[in-house]
């Protein structure tokens, strides 16, 4: 396992929110772990334990208060907003709980949107978007708006969008939170398929069924890593 390159490495990662009026809340406390290329990790924990905060930090949407964070070997803990935007655009794919698609735009426009900021030409954007739609099983839907398809299909569109910049890693915060159990299974099967092709996936969930698709599990409790190991060896 350790022959594979490291995609994510966090050392002593801490996050404190400072609120107006001087109050502060320590949300992440000295987190340490490594994620290797090709892994499929589920982050679990109670509500308010700090899962989303961790994901946002790993996803370069936020900076840690202290500690080190290496993404694909590069230190990213102290980058400017502009640099973080470039890193997100080139190395990271996001899948959200509520899909976050632009309902007035075509599916192709949605899928190819990240490439606009990479300076990719319109023709190439479309080509790559159609290719991604094929991968997520939505061939032929490209020119419709997302409002015409089901929630599960919309999440597939979002996954295609996350894949389009060939990211180092995909972060999914509760990707099945808005879906029924059958559709959830379909989406999780898609993630499993993508993972088999070598794509690194980190997802946040508090559903055990969903977490079962992942090989590895990191459990956060009150801002600390409570468990980090194989999912099937975890006994609550």
């Amino acid at each position: 396992m350790s022959e594979k390159p490291i995609v994510i490495e966090v050392k002593d990662l801490c996050k404190t929110y400072y609120m107006e009026g001087g109050a502060s809340q320590v949300v992440l406390k000295h987190i340490n772990f490594k994620i290797y290329e090709g892994e499929f990790v589920a982050i679990m924990g109670h509500s308010g334990s700090g899962k989303s905060t961790l994901m946002n930090t790993l996803g370069c949407l936020d900076r840690p208060t202290s500690g080190e964070y290496f993404l694909a070997g590069e230190s990213v803990a102290k980058r400017t907003d502009k640099e973080l935007a470039i890193i997100r655009g080139q190395k990271i794919g996001f899948v959200f709980q509520n899909f976050n698609l632009m309902m007035k735009r075509s599916i192709v426009d949605n899928v190819s949107m990240p490439l606009i900021y990479q300076g990719v030409s319109e023709n190439e954007r479309r080509e790559r978007a159609l290719e991604m739609l094929k991968i997520v099983g939505l061939e032929g839907y490209g020119d419709r708006p997302p409002s015409q398809i089901s929630g599960g299909m919309q999440q597939r569109v979002a996954i295609a969008r996350a894949l389009i910049n060939h990211p180092k890693i995909i972060f999914a915060d509760e990707p099945t939170g808005n879906l029924d159990s059958i559709t959830s299974d379909e989406i999780m099967n898609l993630f499993t398929e993508l993972n088999k092709k070598g794509i690194t996936i980190v997802l946040v969930t508090h559903e055990d069924d969903v977490a079962d698709y992942a090989k590895r599990m990191i459990k956060i409790s009150d801002g600390r890593v409570e468990y980090d190991g194989l999912r099937k060896e975890y006994h609550a």
């Binding site: 996803g59 949407l61 907003d81 502009k82 935007a85 470039i86 997100r88 655009g89 080139q90 996001f94 959200f96 976050n100 632009m102 949107m113 990240p114 606009i116 900021y117 990479q118 969008r161 910049n165």
Partner: peptide
């Protein structure tokens, strides 16, 4: 707002 957030998460620079 959410569209703006999504665009930013997907790599849109602030100036863009």
């Amino acid at each position: 707002t959410r569209e703006i957030g999504t665009r930013k998460a997907l790599g849109a620079p602030n100036r863009w």
